[in-house]
């Protein structure tokens, strides 16, 4: 049951990003408030699509269109909140 932003959820999202984007760093590299796009993570549009599809498959939350994706992928905090809000 996901009804609140927890450390567990945030860790799961970080692990998901590392795996879906085939990144060399571990989940601990991603800070909760770090910008996911345009920052040190170096994610491109294909990574964004991978993450959005994984979010849909794992959390049944749809993030569609590049505008929504950009908003949701501001940071791990925002992504977690987006998922929690959508599932309420």
């Amino acid at each position: 049951m996901i009804d609140a932003v927890t450390d567990e959820l945030k860790l799961a999202l970080k692990q998901m990003i590392v795996e879906e984007c085939d990144k060399d760093f571990g989940p601990e590299f991603i800070r909760d408030d770090m910008p996911l796009l345009g920052g040190d993570l170096d994610l491109d549009s294909l990574d964004v699509l991978q993450i959005c599809m994984a979010v849909k498959n794992q959390y049944d939350v749809r993030i569609e269109g590049s505008g929504d994706a950009r908003k949701a992928l501001k940071s791990i905090n925002v992504l977690a909140q987006t998922i929690v809000d959508a599932r309420r």
Partner: peptide, 10 residues
């Protein structure tokens, strides 16, 4: 019966 992963597809 799921969508193919974008990365796999490309």
């Amino acid at each position: 019966a799921e969508m193919p992963k974008p990365l796999h597809f490309v």
